[in-house]
Simulated assay, not measured.
Amino acid sequence: MVGRVTMAEISKAGAHPPSEPTEARRPIHFARPGASSFAIAIDPSGKLHFSSDELYGDHVVVLLGCEVPDSHLAELAADGVSYVVSDKKEIDVGAMLVLLGKELGISRVLLEGGANVNGPLMAAGLVDELSLIVAPALEGNRGSDRIVEFGEEGLAGRVELSLLACEKLGHGAVHLRYSVRHPSK
């Protein structure tokens, strides 16, 4: 599962209205419920486009905000892409994951989002493990990418990490695995 920015870098497709009239069903359209693996994207405003129903062998499922126009849903459906439209302005990713589990059998999700996706999902208690590979290189630019970001308040007091494993990799890199605990739960 990734956010809109990461998925746009992967899909690279532009807008293309369907060539034939296509029904825009709300709130759910599952084009391939029997798929064995899924590429899930969080796209609140419906800016993502796809040239097919899969990426790297994974069937595409898009989690959308309630204000996405029917024309965008029709484009996704025509491309064979599955989607779930939120009934609220803010996407409740937790509720949508429960739905994907029930309807598509998805029980485990690998989150590979950017900081703006990772932070809110961690704060919401939807992440149970953090896996990091640290390489011996520093970028250090102002505004460099972060792994996790959550507003002004951050995640202090909301999330606690506990080291599960530390594995030495080649070229001086290390793989760190942490369990994620939510003290308020």
Rank of each mutant, 00 (worst) to 15 (best):
V2K: 06
V2I: 04
G3Q: 00
R4H: 06
A8S: 14
E9P: 01
G14K: 15
P17I: 08
P18H: 04
P18M: 04
S19M: 09
P21Y: 04
T22Y: 09
A24C: 04
R26L: 10
R26K: 08
P27M: 07
I28K: 10
P33S: 01
G34E: 12
A35S: 08
S36A: 15
S37N: 12
F38P: 13
A39Y: 13
A39T: 11
P44Q: 05
P44T: 08
S45Y: 08
K47Y: 06
V61E: 05
L63D: 01
E67G: 10
S71T: 09
S71V: 05
L73Q: 05
L73V: 04
L76Q: 10
D79P: 02
D79T: 15
V84G: 00
V85E: 01
K88E: 14
E90A: 13
V93M: 11
V98T: 13
V98C: 10
L100T: 10
G101S: 09
G101C: 05
G101Q: 08
E103M: 13
I106N: 03
V109H: 06
V109F: 09
G114T: 02
A115P: 00
N116I: 00
N116E: 07
A123G: 03
A123F: 01
A123D: 02
G125H: 07
D128P: 05
I133R: 15
P136H: 10
E139H: 09
G140I: 09
G143Q: 11
S144Y: 04
V148Y: 01
E149W: 01
F150R: 05
G151A: 03
E152A: 14
A156G: 02
A156H: 03
S162R: 15
S162Y: 07
L163A: 11
C166G: 09
E167C: 07
L169Q: 14
G170C: 05
R181C: 05
R181A: 14
H182M: 06
